[in-house]
């Protein structure tokens, strides 16, 4: 393979690939053969409860920890053999951000830029700080959790990385700032960046991610387009007929289960998949009231985890 061909592969390969990635902390298996593909230029939401392996995955991708087995590739490079080259192209925000308390935000940014071997792009950093309403001249120790998070976001974004690895990017931010951060991430994507982020805020993932991966006990159990995943979710509907109706009529509709009935006029239904069949079945009867609850990513997420014990540690 010549050098030009190799360079082209590096530039065209998916942003993140992991194959059979395993990592244990003593007796605790944090990753149990994780297979993951994140394409360039997409926004990928990585979901899972505490201890599912989200942070461990990100830390493997940055070579902060070494996997016990399997392989990982970031922007076409192996992070274990080319850690500096990978990190030069990545912006990272840890789930628990710790900064030097005595330094101002501006000094923190200057330090991180020095580690990158380049001067701070103050035009970019100041613009980001302004949008996030962050005062860069206050010591970090005097900043609230949300404002510290903003410093972390600025340092992750200011060098315009090709790949953003963000662990709970809106943690500690107020709703207005959360929206601003989502806008910044969409703009980063529009600029060609790939965004890989973990979050517990399902509405945020739903609003931002084009694809989501759900990790459960160290294994990826689902990867799908966000809209398609929600479309496959279970909906709930409550229908009220003008006259009593035989419930068997509704029970026979594919994907529909009658959960409760009241006086043969009010039915609570569970609908799997599309609503089309139900609507057609209802058309045969006079309906006085129809109420449906929109399925959310949270419903999908909870469906994967409802039988699990609640893990207590972050991995």
């Amino acid at each position: 393979m010549n050098l030009i061909h190799a360079a082209a592969l590096v530039n065209e390969s998916p942003a993140i690939i992991t194959r059979h990635l395993t990592k244990s902390y003593g007796p605790v298996e944090a990753l149990r053969g994780l297979d993951l593909d994140v394409q360039r230029g997409e926004i990928f939401g990585f979901l899972g409860p505490n201890g599912a392996g989200k942070t461990t995955t990100i830390r493997c991708l940055l070579d902060l920890i070494r996997p016990d087995g399997g392989t990982a590739t970031v922007l076409g490079l192996d992070p274990q053999t080319h850690p500096v080259a990978v990190r030069a192209r990545v912006g990272y925000l840890p789930g628990e951000l710790h900064l030097e308390g005595n330094h101002t935000g501006r000094r923190v940014l200057r330090y991180f830029s020095a580690l990158r071997g380049r001067p701070v792009a103050w035009d970019v950093a100041n613009a980001l700080a302004e949008r996030l309403r962050l005062d860069l001249d206050r010591p970090v120790k005097n900043l609230s959790k949300g404002n510290k998070q903003k410093v972390g976001l600025v340092q992750a974004l200011m060098h315009r990385p090709e790949l953003l690895l963000l662990d709970e990017p809106t943690s500690g931010l107020d709703p207005l700032m959360q929206q601003e951060v989502l806008a910044l991430l969409r703009e980063a994507k529009a600029g060609g960046a790939t965004v890989f982020f973990c979050s517990h805020i399902m509405s945020e993932v739903e609003a931002l991610a084009e694809r989501v991966g759900i990790i459960r006990q160290g294994r990826l159990v689902e990867v799908a387009d966000t809209a398609a995943l929600i479309g496959r979710a279970v909906h709930h509907a409550k229908v009220q007929f003008r006259n009593p109706v035989d419930g068997d009529v509704l029970d026979g509709v594919p994907g529909v289960t009658v959960l409760a009935r009241d006086d043969s006029r009010i039915f609570t239904l569970q609908v799997e998949g599309e609503m089309d069949g139900l609507i057609k079945a209802l058309a045969a009867f006079p309906v006085t009231h129809l109420e449906t609850t929109r399925a959310s990513l949270e419903d999908v997420f909870l469906a994967y985890y409802q039988d699990d014990d609640v893990p207590t540690e972050d991995h």
Binding site: D63, H98, R116, L165
Partner: peptide, 15 residues
């Protein structure tokens, strides 16, 4: 121990 090393080593500096 304070958690700062994670972020430092996420920058392009080798160990």
């Amino acid at each position: 121990e304070s958690g700062r090393l994670d972020l430092i080593l996420a920058h392009p500096v080798s160990r």
